[in-house]
Computed example of a mutant assay.
Amino acid sequence: MPVEPDFGAEIGIDHATQRGAAEDPLMDKPAPARRRAETLDYIQSMLGQLRIMADTERCGMLAYLIEMAYVEAGDVIRGERLSNVGLNKRNTSA
Score class of each variant (00 low, 15 high):
M1A: 10
M1G: 14
M1V: 05
E4Y: 04
P5M: 01
D6Y: 02
D6R: 09
F7S: 00
G8M: 03
G8Q: 04
E10T: 12
I11V: 14
I11S: 06
I11H: 07
G12Q: 08
I13N: 00
I13W: 01
D14V: 09
T17W: 05
T17M: 07
Q18S: 15
R19C: 05
R19A: 07
R19S: 11
G20D: 05
G20C: 06
A21K: 13
A21N: 10
P25D: 06
L26E: 14
L26W: 12
M27F: 10
K29E: 12
P30R: 09
P30F: 01
A31G: 04
A31C: 06
P32Q: 08
A33W: 09
R36Y: 12
A37Q: 15
E38W: 13
E38C: 04
T39H: 15
L40Y: 13
L40G: 06
D41R: 15
D41V: 02
Y42N: 10
Y42R: 14
Y42T: 09
Y42A: 08
Q44I: 01
M46I: 12
M46H: 09
M46F: 07
G48L: 03
Q49P: 00
Q49N: 08
R51H: 02
R51K: 14
I52T: 08
M53T: 15
A54M: 10
T56H: 07
E57S: 08
R58Y: 05
R58C: 03
C59S: 13
G60K: 11
G60H: 11
M61Q: 14
L62S: 14
Y64V: 01
L65F: 08
L65V: 06
L65K: 14
I66D: 00
I66Y: 02
E67V: 00
M68S: 10
M68K: 15
M68L: 13
A69L: 13
Y70G: 00
Y70Q: 00
V71T: 11
V71F: 03
A73E: 01
G74A: 04
D75K: 14
V76S: 03
V76T: 07
I77D: 02
R78T: 13
G79M: 04
R81P: 06
L82W: 05
L82E: 14
L82K: 14
V85L: 08
V85F: 04
V85M: 05
N88G: 02
K89V: 05
K89Y: 02
R90D: 00
R90G: 00
T92V: 04
S93E: 06
S93C: 01
S93H: 08
S93K: 12
S93Q: 09
A94Q: 11
A94F: 09
A94L: 07
A94N: 09
